[in-house]
Design a protein around this nucleic acid. Structure first.
Lengths: 197, 197, 197, 197
DNA sequence: AATGAATGAGCGTTCATTCAT
DNA sequence: TATGAATGAACGCTCATTCAT
């Protein structure tokens, strides 16, 4: 990928991390942060919407790779799940606003319809990949006899959602339940085990 | 509450339902839809951000009331849970963009920090109420002996998240799992029962 | 007509007189010259194209009124024609760039198609009015016996064009023929008489 | 003339024929159509204004050559005039936007003053040539005895204008007078003969 | 209290021009 | 000589906000 294009992606990502999706996320700002001219942005993208949409897709791909890059050495089921949850948590904390947005499963009228379709398609694709990845981890548990066979895709989806929402719960600390990271992971693991036994 | 203020709230809500958060959500549009003068909006609110923030809070309260208004006649656990999930699903479908936004647990830099705090505070409050409400339903199950005692707040949170994300999954139809409403509710119920047994 | 709208028309006309159609004819400039805010222009017009198109139409109407406002006291054919040519010449000198543009019978891609159609329609209408007006003057000549009956619309068109192009020739002084105003008018009159005898 | 320069001229002319003077007549477009690099344009011209101005002059020269290239075989006055009018009509129809612009005798603030002067000077020169050419045709008529001696430059100018405006009238079809090409030419001829008898 | 005409800061976008290669 | 990636000034336009009525 062109160097400048990547600079622009990173400028947008930085901006979103620091100031969110809607505050001053202007082409001027992006160009300044990317250290390129305002006109240059339009050499690589056709519109602001496209800049944002492509950045989101770029970010999604990057994050996806980080999530599903297997830790092949870990062959133990519980450890693998534990490691996965920790990884996710780390990524979510680092990039909170991005992931909360993706979590919402909708871009909320942020951009025009055709670009939104593109993003939703990619989101769907990555969710399938994630489900598959989670399925592999669960297979390991089945092999070990820790859990029973999981032949229901929806259950895998629910487990994924459970993991993700628990992490979100932890990050936003939305109530009086105080758990540290390890306790959280343990709790989530317990619930998953219950579902799968 | 003043009549005009409510007109404005409803205008914003109508607009968001019809055109989303970001398309033409202008004071002009809101005033027109509310059938008041543009200047009048500023008699009741200090800024556009405040209009939106207060509308969100208003909407949250309204929705919350609808969710936790008990259907006291239903004393059977499963029926109560069933009814609750159906209610939620109905509300989410009707007001998709609103709820996906709230789901994201973040207002995504939509508005300034102090208003965001206000919303997050209200969100926390309503989540606690919801948890309490869900707790009551579960108590019923304990009484009936269908499930075991739930003395862990986090588990209730997880069950709430499970319900909500399953509904979101259904609405956005994000993958190839095809379930009709009733099947979905059944599946969710099964998983909840597993967690609580 | 609204006061501000007229201010804007006059600002555009002033600008065109001073700097032409294409140099710095910006909304900012127009607003400044009209002594209104930039946004105000958009309260009265939907786009820059519309501003220009409506100004052209306004100008055309104004000019048309000035041209065809009969000088009823003059009942003598030659004097009427003489007076008419003088009036035209005066208007053309005062507003050279405007009229040369209109003369070109095309707006040259200045504005979008539908507005162009509107202008062309108005132009057609005013040309018909002008032809009619010129016809009246010629009728006078017929009555007096100075010229023969003119029952050919095309001949009237040609006489109109002859008058106008002669004036343009005078204004732009495009060659070495040096005539003063009166000589020009006389020459034109002579040619017209030849055509009509 | 350099090959590339001519490519650029033709690119501009093509563009103007197809899309007019103001729509997307950019250096990028010109360079693309001329099949040269954008920077190359600036090797041959100092600015966009110069590109346009020189193209106009080039076009004027070309057109002028086409107009005044004598059809020496035609020695008959009426036929020569007839042939001339037809030629002009053809050129005007083919290149409508160009000629309406030139007709307006003003570049309408299209370009800066010194370039405009250059164009106006060339226009004057070509008009003189045209007058001379028209004079030759008329001489033929005098020789034949069809018309009387024309010793008045202004009359020649008027006849030229009559021809040109009649053609414009035909092209823009600005009113309800419906004439086909041949009728038009006949009418114009008749009027010319009247003027010159 | 209620209004909406007026405003101008700020945005997305274009495009003539430059300059390193 | 020829190029086109990079630039930023300048544009058309939007819309939150104000204020005279």
């Amino acid at each position: 990928m062109s160097n400048k294009k990547e600079q622009i992606f990173n400028a947008v990502i930085t901006h979103i991390k620091e100031e969110g999706f809607l505050n001053h996320l202007t082409i001027s700002e992006i160009a300044k942060k990317a250290d390129v001219g305002k006109g240059t942005v339009y050499e690589y993208f056709n519109s602001k919407d496209e800049v944002i949409a492509e950045t989101i897709i770029y970010m999604m791909e990057e994050t996806s790779h980080k999530i599903i890059s297997r830790q092949d050495k870990i062959t133990n089921f519980k450890d693998a799940l534990y490691y996965h949850i920790k990884t996710l948590m780390h990524l979510f904390i680092e990039n909170s606003s991005f992931h909360t947005m993706l979590m919402s499963q909708d871009i909320g009228g942020l951009i025009n319809e055709s670009l939104k379709q593109k993003i939703m398609k990619k989101l769907k694709e990555l969710k399938m990949k994630y489900r598959e990845y989670l399925g592999h981890i669960l297979q390991q548990g089945v092999k070990e006899g820790s859990i029973q066979e999981v032949n229901d895709a929806f259950t895998v989806v629910c487990i994924g959602n459970l993991i993700v929402t628990s992490i979100m719960h932890y990050i936003h600390n939305c109530d009086d339940i105080t758990l540290d990271k390890d306790e959280l992971v343990d709790k989530v693991l317990q619930i998953i085990l219950k579902i799968l036994t």
